[in-house]
């Protein structure tokens, strides 16, 4: 096999493999759904697109929702150089606001940073309004010391938002079908 043919084969293999990742928008990458007695369960996989506006440290959140209940479990993780216990969380986008009291799940110390994991009970309609907004949301965590603000790039948000729109539509349609 000559060099050119070998290179072409390698490029074709890589393109073929990557095409699975970039072809269209696979909603399964963003959420999972489970049908169970007492109501469906939706889980939005962890999102790590948001970064601290000061030190660019990571922020991750995932959402669990059961239609029929008004609230969602908004679980989130943030890293700080010093311990910073959260009191509450606020998500805002344009005029839309969603807030909840932060309940500690655990605190850990990894790679020279404090890892804080919390859960907040947030109203589904308010959360859907914030995350359904085309405007990139800002997430603020209120601690005893100072508020921590996390932001997302507009381009990154656009992609995630497109998936969220479809997921919220699926949730509302299936909830309607279930309630009949």
């Amino acid at each position: 096999m000559n060099k050119k043919l070998f290179r072409l084969l390698i490029i074709a293999l890589i393109a073929f493999g990557l095409s699975f990742e970039v072809s269209g928008q696979k909603l399964e990458k963003y959420y999972t759904h489970r049908t169970q007695e007492g109501g469906d369960l939706y889980f939005l996989y962890p999102n790590t697109d948001f970064k601290n506006s000061d030190d660019h440290s990571e922020f991750a959140f995932d959402i669990t929702y059961r239609p029929g209940t008004d609230s969602t479990f908004f679980n989130f993780t943030y890293l700080t150089p010093q311990p910073a216990q959260a009191d509450s969380i606020l998500l805002s986008a344009g005029d839309n606001r969603a807030a909840g009291h932060a309940q500690k799940l655990y605190v850990d110390f990894k790679k020279k940073r404090w890892v804080h994991r919390y859960s907040a009970d947030i109203d589904y309609q308010e959360l859907a309004a914030v995350l359904g907004s085309t405007e990139p949301p800002t997430i603020t965590i209120f601690t005893a010391e100072k508020p921590l603000t996390f932001v997302v790039k507009r381009g990154t948000w656009k992609k995630y938002h497109a998936a969220l729109e479809k997921i919220f539509y699926i949730i509302s349609e299936n909830a309607e079908a279930e309630s009949r």
Binding site: L13, F16, G17, F20, T32, R34, Q36, E37, G38, L41, F43, Y45, P46, D62, T64, R66, F73, N75
Partner: peptide, 23 residues
């Protein structure tokens, strides 16, 4: 060989109902 994206079960218990999901 080129691409894998598979979801499968790992374990089931006798507990009923789920309200939380962790990954």
């Amino acid at each position: 060989l080129l691409y894998t994206d598979v979801k499968a079960p790992m374990a089931v218990t006798s507990n009923t109902g789920s309200t939380k999901v962790g990954t």
